[in-house]
Amino acid sequence: MSDLAKDAASMAKGSAGLRGAPHHTAKPLHDFKAASHDLSALGALGSLLKATGDIRDGMNTLSALTESLSEEWNAEAKLLGEVSDAFDLLDVLLSAAARAKKG
């Protein structure tokens, strides 16, 4: 197996891994978002410190950042897949050119 083929296989594997990452964060993210709407655990302390709104805003920001990270993972996975495909094609073309040169 040529180095290009090994690199392509490695990139394809990495791409598949990145595509699967958001599946592992979907339920925890959903639960986290739901918890941001029920901050009763803060009790009177949250109301006294007027922290409930700040905590809710922070949780919403973290949720949005996590969603952005998932989008970034998908974009990276797509790019890795495209580079992997290009390496596969280049490997085939180089092999064909070497065979044509030999004979």
Rank of each mutant, 00 (worst) to 15 (best):
D31C: 09
L45S: 12
L62R: 07
D38P: 00
A86Q: 01
E72Y: 14
G81E: 01
A26I: 08
G81Q: 00
L42Q: 03
S70P: 05
S68E: 02
M11A: 07
D31E: 12
G53K: 05
L69E: 11
K6S: 09
L94K: 11
H30E: 15
L79W: 07
L79Y: 07
E72F: 14
S68A: 02
L90D: 06
K50I: 05
L89G: 08
L4W: 12
K6N: 09
M1W: 03
L62A: 10
L18M: 12
L90T: 08
S63K: 01
L62K: 08
P28C: 04
A86I: 03
N74S: 14
P22T: 04
D31H: 11
A34R: 12
L42P: 02
R56P: 00
S68V: 01
D38I: 01
K50N: 12
G53M: 03
A51C: 08
T66G: 08
L93V: 02
E76C: 07
G103S: 14
A100G: 00
D57M: 11
A21T: 12
A75N: 03
A51G: 10
H24N: 11
A44P: 00
A9M: 09
F87L: 10
G17P: 13
F87V: 02
G20H: 13
S10H: 09
N60I: 13
A35M: 07
G43M: 05
A26K: 13
L18Y: 04
S40Q: 04
A9C: 05
L4Q: 13
S47H: 06
A44I: 06
L49Q: 07
M11F: 11
K102C: 00
L62N: 03
S40K: 08
L80S: 10
D88G: 12
S36W: 02
R56M: 02
D38H: 03
D7E: 11
N60V: 13
S2D: 09
A41L: 11
F32T: 00
E82C: 11
A9H: 06
M59G: 04
W73G: 01
K78A: 15
S40V: 06
K78H: 10
G53I: 03
T25S: 11
S63A: 09
H30D: 13
D54E: 11
K33G: 01
G43T: 04
V92E: 13
L29H: 00
A51S: 14
L79Q: 11
A5E: 12
L39R: 05
I55G: 01
E82L: 14
H37C: 02
A100W: 00
S95F: 00
S47N: 09
D88A: 14
K78D: 15
A64G: 10
L89A: 15
E71S: 15
G14A: 13
L42C: 02
L94N: 12
L18R: 02
N74F: 10
R19K: 07
G53W: 05
A12Y: 01
A77D: 08
S95Q: 06
T61Q: 09
S36R: 08
L79C: 06
D57P: 05
G58E: 04
S95P: 01
K102Y: 03
H23D: 11
A100Y: 01
K102H: 06
S15V: 02
K33Q: 08
